[in-house]
Simulated assay, not measured.
Amino acid sequence: MDAPAVVGELRQLHEEAEDPSVERMPADDEVYGALLYAEKHAGALRKLALEKQRAAAVRRVQLWEYLRERAEVHQARAVADARAADAEWVELAPALAVNAPSAAYNKAKRLRAAALDDEVPDGDPLRRTPEAVIAAELRIARQKQEAQRAEEAARQRHRLLMPVAQRLLDHREGLVLDEDAEYWLDEVAEVLPNCVTGIQMVSLHRYLSAAVRALSRLEQRTARPVAMTDEAGIALSAAAHFVEQ
């Protein structure tokens, strides 16, 4: 929900009703204060048609629901910070308005479900049970580990990409080139010296792949190896192996 926009709609209705106090209504991004104002001055809307009064009240309901959901998310984060600072469940029980450490633990897990829904907004709503939350946390932890492994694999490939490309360029004179292969090797030579960012790495990989394909097509077309020296042949084989992975 775009809460400030909804507050703006409420403000417009109060202005339309010529609410004499509307200038004291908090700003659109001060949702809680604006709601308290709208509740206190709801009578000012009686000049409007019943349909508009109803729309304003429904908007208030929606905004309170939004704040309730956001409060759960932020309270869950506060509990996590308290636990990270070695707060015991017995200490958190009164803060969470429950009577026992076990009840504090269970309520914290229910709050954590709201935080997880906020972290993964496109997923199915999470059941508010400790078991469901623990399972979701384990699933998210596995996903993060897989993402980290994928990132590390990508970084490793990037570290290998540059020397493979450089080696092929070093033995360029030992290759038979046509116009296509020469063009792509020129592109590799252009980007390689300043290849730092992820986008540049992707471009370098694309250019190297295109160069390898061009050399392979040239071999197929001429039925002759494009490598005129052993070193050029090894460099080309290494590049072809890399781009095929």
Results as ranks from 00 to 15, higher is better:
residue 231 E to D: 14
residue 216 S to C: 05
residue 62 Q to N: 10
residue 36 L to D: 12
residue 76 A to L: 00
residue 218 L to M: 14
residue 168 L to Y: 04
residue 82 A to V: 14
residue 200 Q to H: 02
residue 244 E to D: 11
residue 37 Y to N: 03
residue 92 L to Q: 00
residue 65 E to Q: 04
residue 19 D to R: 00
residue 211 A to G: 06
residue 181 A to H: 01
residue 130 P to E: 00
residue 22 V to Q: 03
residue 221 R to Q: 15
residue 48 L to N: 10
residue 62 Q to A: 11
residue 23 E to W: 07
residue 157 R to N: 01
residue 92 L to Y: 13
residue 215 L to E: 10
residue 106 N to L: 11
residue 137 E to K: 02
residue 90 V to M: 07
residue 26 P to R: 01
residue 90 V to F: 05
residue 236 L to C: 03
residue 177 L to W: 13
residue 47 K to Q: 11
residue 68 R to E: 15
residue 38 A to G: 09
residue 97 A to W: 07
residue 135 A to W: 05
residue 170 D to P: 02
residue 24 R to D: 14
residue 151 E to V: 08
residue 241 H to W: 06
residue 90 V to E: 02
residue 192 L to D: 00
residue 176 V to G: 01
residue 197 T to E: 08
residue 146 E to G: 09
residue 88 E to A: 13
residue 173 E to S: 08
residue 78 A to C: 11
residue 115 A to M: 01
residue 105 Y to L: 10
residue 77 R to S: 03
residue 179 E to Y: 10
residue 26 P to M: 05
residue 234 I to M: 10
residue 179 E to M: 02
residue 182 E to H: 09
residue 153 A to V: 15
residue 136 A to V: 06
residue 54 R to Y: 02
residue 129 T to Y: 02
residue 201 M to V: 03
residue 32 Y to P: 00
residue 106 N to S: 15
residue 91 E to D: 12
residue 204 L to S: 13
residue 223 A to D: 15
residue 232 A to Y: 03
residue 1 M to A: 14
residue 193 P to K: 07
residue 235 A to G: 11
residue 28 D to C: 07
residue 65 E to I: 07
residue 241 H to E: 10
residue 151 E to F: 11
residue 132 A to F: 12
residue 1 M to G: 02
residue 186 D to C: 09
residue 213 R to L: 14
residue 88 E to Q: 12
residue 33 G to F: 07
residue 197 T to V: 04
residue 186 D to A: 13
residue 241 H to F: 07
residue 181 A to M: 06
residue 199 I to S: 12
residue 23 E to A: 13
residue 113 A to K: 02
residue 106 N to P: 11
residue 35 L to S: 02
residue 236 L to Q: 00
residue 103 A to T: 08
residue 45 L to N: 08
residue 221 R to Y: 13
residue 201 M to F: 04
residue 60 R to P: 00
residue 210 A to Y: 10
residue 110 R to F: 00
residue 81 D to L: 14
residue 6 V to F: 02
residue 167 R to C: 06
residue 39 E to Q: 14
residue 160 L to P: 05
residue 221 R to F: 14
residue 95 A to E: 13
residue 105 Y to A: 12
residue 167 R to Y: 07
residue 31 V to G: 06
residue 118 D to Q: 04
residue 217 R to E: 12
residue 199 I to L: 04
residue 45 L to F: 05
residue 200 Q to M: 14
residue 73 V to I: 04
residue 19 D to C: 15
residue 152 E to Q: 08
residue 17 A to R: 05
residue 46 R to S: 14
residue 140 I to E: 05
residue 44 A to Y: 10
residue 112 R to Y: 14
residue 220 Q to G: 04
residue 245 Q to I: 05
residue 193 P to Y: 11
residue 215 L to V: 03
residue 104 A to Q: 12
residue 31 V to F: 12
residue 14 H to F: 13
residue 164 V to T: 15
residue 239 A to F: 06
residue 9 E to C: 12
residue 142 R to K: 14
residue 148 Q to P: 06
residue 115 A to R: 01
residue 80 A to C: 08
residue 211 A to W: 00
residue 21 S to C: 13
residue 7 V to K: 14
residue 8 G to F: 03
residue 186 D to I: 07
residue 95 A to P: 00
residue 154 A to N: 05
residue 187 E to W: 06
residue 84 A to F: 08
residue 142 R to H: 13
residue 16 E to A: 15
residue 220 Q to D: 15
residue 112 R to E: 15
residue 58 V to L: 15
